[in-house]
Simulated assay, not measured.
Amino acid sequence: MPAKQARVREIASQALPPFLLGPNHTKSNALHDIEFVGELHRWSNFLRFVENEIQGQRWSTKVIKYTHRLGNPEAESQVIGDETGLQGVFSHSVGFMVGKILKAQSIDLEFADFKCLGNHYANTPDSILMTKNVELKVVGELKVPWVYEHEMCEAYEEESMLRYLLAQPIKYMKDLNCMYGFMSNYCETIFLRQEFIAGRWIIDYSPVVRASTSYVKTDMADLQATPVVSLRQCFLAVAALAQTQGPVYNTTPNSEWVVKLR
């Protein structure tokens, strides 16, 4: 039986495949002992921005994936038990697939390991998006989803938890002069943006985007409707913003940005 062709727009709109948790797995909290103490705001109309971006795309008709008609081999996920395994799943379902989407849409960004930058930064972020000219545009951090402290929907409603959860990628963004970032446990992702507004630097954070969510088109005229977008679409929209953004130079003292927990 011939394989089914999947084109760019279809793959972008799909939910991520699930993974299987192994019987033996890490149980410890991997968040750094730091917190963000700067100004924190919800990223206004983030989901609407993503849907506007995907509706405005001139979609390539390129086939970027083939699937069996009797099932989707991508859904036959590997069994994982630690952050290294999670990074592998993320690298394929997000990094590889979103990379193919970005290439097809002529967006000059690709997922890469931080070491590819050749930067002598003392820390090693888990994931980045960079240009072909090796310019950093987005920096991200990954944690396993089965540890309570890494759960994003819980933290989203409690600011003190959120400041602890997001501190690591926020620190990377400032240190590396990068406007955009993200924190992900694969199942849940929050996107970040640092901006200079009214004489001060702030961090905007998106709603929690679930990996299990597929795109559902909304009536763009209904401004009260909450768009339902996929994680891949969110990465596409943020990448489209980030590709033309140069370095940002946040001069906020470290004591007023990210500090060690007391």
Rank of each mutant, 00 (worst) to 15 (best):
A3Y: 11
Q5E: 12
F19V: 04
G22H: 09
H25R: 09
V37C: 06
E39N: 12
L40K: 07
S44H: 06
L47E: 00
F49P: 00
E51G: 09
E51R: 11
E74P: 15
S93Y: 15
G95S: 04
K103Y: 07
A104T: 03
A104I: 01
S106E: 02
D113H: 10
F114D: 12
F114I: 12
F114R: 09
G118T: 10
G118M: 12
N119S: 14
H120E: 14
Y121A: 06
N123K: 12
T124G: 11
I128R: 01
I128Y: 00
N133A: 12
G140F: 02
E141C: 14
E141G: 07
H150R: 05
C153N: 13
E158T: 11
E158C: 14
Q168R: 09
K171M: 12
M173R: 05
N177C: 10
G181I: 01
M183C: 10
N185D: 05
Y186W: 03
E188P: 07
T189C: 05
L192F: 02
L192S: 09
W201M: 10
Y205H: 05
S206M: 02
R210W: 07
S212P: 14
S212N: 15
V216E: 10
A221P: 13
Q224D: 13
R232G: 04
V238R: 00
T244F: 03
Q245W: 01
N250W: 00
T252A: 10
S255H: 10
K260F: 15
R262T: 15
